[in-house]
Design a protein around this nucleic acid. Structure first.
Length: 466
RNA sequence: GACCCUAUCGUCUAGAGGCCUAGGACAAUACCCUUUCACGGUAUGAACCCGGGUUCGAAUCCCGGUGGGGUCGCCA
């Protein structure tokens, strides 16, 4: 039984790297009819916030990566961690350490001065030497008694075999002086208790893996399989951080991206299936495997995401898009329900825009009266165009069946009677009707805008400057 | 500094020793389509980090170098 988990710490929103980790873990479970678990790692009380928990949940939901189990919260599992720590203390696989932070700082400074790898020197580790008497008034931390010899090795799902010598590892703290357990310990207990079969996480955790494996062994637990995903770099090739380029997945929502476009993009970033570029979430789950996950970091490319977004926009259901547009327009104080044919207008533009915000902007003139920019008027509303527009208005008023075909006929009729080429009439018409010199086919615009609005906007032709 | 990971067009990637005069996609450029702008179509330019091996043969395997990244917390 495949059981994967996504285990973010709620110290911020769900960013793009976390989203991809979640997607891969989710897809792997789906692929194998397994279980995907969401676990919130909130043991850092000082930095975890309920708002961040909510932001992560919102992000997961927007992407549609629903967990089969959880969310579980580590803070609610304290009793269990303490129980395991007590067992380890009793078994001798963990011990109390009374070294103060000041002593630790001094030790680290000394090691760095000697160009050595900073690490705990094991001064309170039970061994051959007799231990000093515990100093009074100091609450000890609990350290894991790491093996001294040999190597810890595992076959990483994405990076292949990785070996790290135990000599590189020190006795890390599993419980703070106040008794609360630390990350490397909680993860182990949780992955064990939750019977996680595949630990899929960012490769910034590679160095934690040997420690965790050692604890698992000390506990007599089964060691899961590990897959460490390379990181995602920003558009500029720089590392993503709160300060630089890292944004919440929800930002993609406000920027007008469709979740399926983001998912498709993320799926293709660091994973491939031959030449496939466009695939649904379902298809991704069916294809996903670790053999085709890239082992090196990938640079985020917004332009490719834009291309995918435009693609999904084209084939999306206009009714759904209309809902999104309504929501965005409402935020601008525009009541899109006033547009009797919002869905039609959306259908007219959905294959011409790159995101939902552009779609909302495009549809805007179909909802409320437009005020054409003066430059456009000056440029296109020539006396010739004015007279043609006036005559077109009259012809249009007589059209019985307000359909693109008939409207196109009316336009062509005006063209002939005024000896004009299509652009000479269509562009001024666009400016007057939509406030823009570009639009979809003019007959479709006329039909979609509707008889009433067209005639009204042509009626009130902006006057030339005296 | 130590340890670990990593290296194919500008970017994402295909590539599991001969199928590679290295394929696809985004982006770029040109042309076509056209009622403007898009969309779409066609075409073009663009890469195996360097040096040694192994092999009849290496983008693919090995070693070294260099570049990039990660980790060295009573953070996760």
């Amino acid at each position: 039984m495949i059981r994967t988990r996504f285990a973010p710490s709620p110290t911020g929103y769900l960013h793009i790297g976390g989203a991809r980790t979640a997607l891969f873990a989710w897809a792997y479970a789906r692929h194998h009819q397994g279980t995907f678990i969401l676990r919130i790692e909130d043991t850092d009380v000082a930095r975890s916030t309920p708002a961040a928990v909510q932001a992560i949940l919102d992000g997961m939901q927007w992407l549609g990566l629903d967990p089969d189990e959880g969310p579980f919260y580590q803070m609610q599992r304290m009793a269990r961690y303490k129980e395991v720590i007590a067992q380890m203390l009793a078994a001798g696989t963990a011990y109390h350490c009374y070294t103060s932070r000041e002593e630790l700082d001094a030790l680290r400074a000394e090691q760095e001065a000697n160009k050595q790898k900073p690490r705990y020197d094991g001064r309170w580790r039970p061994g051959d030497q007799p231990l000093p008497a515990p100093p009074a008034g100091i609450q000890p931390v609990v350290r894991f008694r790491n093996p001294v010899d040999g190597v810890v090795a595992w076959d990483d799902l994405v990076k292949g075999r990785i070996e790290i010598a135990n000599a590189e590892l020190d006795d890390f703290i599993i419980a703070r002086a106040d008794g609360t357990p630390t990350y490397n310990f909680c993860v182990v207990v949780d992955d064990w208790d939750m019977r996680i079969s595949h630990v899929i996480r960012g490769d910034d955790h590679v160095n934690n893996t040997p420690r965790q494996i050692n604890v698992l062994r000390a506990l007599g637990a089964t060691v899961p399989l590990y897959g460490h995903l390379p990181m995602i770099l920003g558009d500029d090739g720089q590392k993503l951080s709160k300060r630089h380029g890292a944004v919440s997945v929800m930002q993609y929502d406000t920027d007008g991206y469709l979740p399926e476009a983001v998912l498709n993009y993320l799926g293709r970033l660091g994973w491939s299936h031959g030449d496939e570029e466009i695939f649904s979430l379902e298809q991704f789950c069916a294809w996903f495997d670790f053999d085709h996950v890239t082992s090196s970091a990938a640079q985020f490319n917004t332009e490719k995401l834009n291309w995918l977004n435009a693609h999904y926009l084209k084939s999306a259901d206009p009714a759904r898009l209309a809902g999104e547009v309504r929501r965005r327009l409402a935020a601008q104080g525009v009541d899109a329900d006033a547009a009797h044919a919002l869905e039609k207008a959306v259908a007219l533009y959905q294959e011409r825009v790159g995101n939902l915000n552009e779609l909302a902007d495009a549809v805007h003139p179909f909802c409320v009266a437009v005020e054409p920019p003066t430059e456009l008027l000056a440029q296109h509303l020539t006396p010739l165009a004015r007279s043609a527009l006036a005559s077109l208005r009259d012809t249009l008023a007589g059209v019985s069946d307000w359909q693109a075909a008939q409207l196109g006929q009316a336009v062509k009729q005006t063209l002939t009677s005024h000896s004009l080429k299509m652009p000479q009439l269509a562009i001024p018409l666009r400016v007057v009707l939509l406030g823009q010199a570009q639009s979809p086919s003019i007959d479709a615009v006329l039909e979609t805008l509707g008889r009433e609005r067209v005639l009204e906007r042509l009626e009130r032709l902006p006057q030339p400057r005296a």
